[in-house]
Amino acid sequence: MAEITILEAVNLALARALEENPDVVVFGEDVGVNGGVFRATEGLQKRYGAERVLDTPLAETMIAGMAIGMAAQGLRPVAEVQFMGFIYPTIEQMICHATRLRNRTRGRITCPMVLRAPYGGGIHAPEHHSESTEAIFAHMPGLRVVIPSSPLRAYGLLLAAIQDPDPVVFLEPKRIYRMMKQEVPDDGEALPLDVCFQLRDGADVTLVTWGAMTHETLQAAEQLAAEGISCDVLDVATIKPLDMETILNSVAKTGRCVIIHEAARTGGVGAEIAAQLAEHGLLSLFAPVQRVTGYDTIMPMFKLENDYMPSTERIITAVKKTLEEA
């Protein structure tokens, strides 16, 4: 079996969904003929037709709004916003309608839609192309926010998102779109949502992260292992709703926790995890929880983006800080 990238796994999952379910419709800007600016939808229009794989006019509010309308009629729309920096016009549609339709109608009308967007920094992109603002969506009741970090999880979680009966924002870490390859069997098997994935078993400290930061976090864990420090690494994957049980169980084992995310620190999803650790796991902690995150600044343009994003060194420093406590 050939090994594929996250990007190819996204494409494979979309193709599988289009193949298996005639209600699945894929659309967005440059998604059809061009196959998406990152090529996530390459070849899909040719295989599944221009009625199901569509180029839309350039209007993000409309992309989200039409997805809601389609979903309300029982289709399974998978809409793409080209970059997370352009997702903000969709927020009103998502918070006022997508997330509320089931609740407003007491289940009479539902909204099984997926809003996909590449997100995060590190690809030397122009302004507005590098942000990690997942916390905005994680704050919305009624929504799921899912972030894969490997080809296997991109395939399985995207299928799960499409099959889910409720709206899902699916954020693809574009920095690692082509960074790693894995064998991904095209078996149509979805992975579970709402659960963390353990990426590395360890006893001394819990590292909680998601998206592209899993890469630096695993690197840090590897380097720390050489120094005899054993890290339990969790990929949160579904940041809304949060699987705190897995995180609390890990912290009960290690007594230490470092949360790593690319997004700005204040009000980030890491703050919610830290708050819940304080509420439910304080007594198992030997040291204060550390956060290694982007700063509370505007995401800088690419000359400084590597200074903004958490590095392996910053993660190692934070881990060692938690180990200084008795």
């Binding site: 409309m62 809601i68 009629q73 309608h97």
Partner: peptide, 19 residues
């Protein structure tokens, strides 16, 4: 209640009917 947000939704519903 939010103003005009249902026009794009109407387009999505109409597209589902057309499809």
């Amino acid at each position: 209640v939010p103003i005009a947000t249902h026009v794009p939704q109407c387009a999505g519903i109409a597209y589902a009917m057309k499809l």
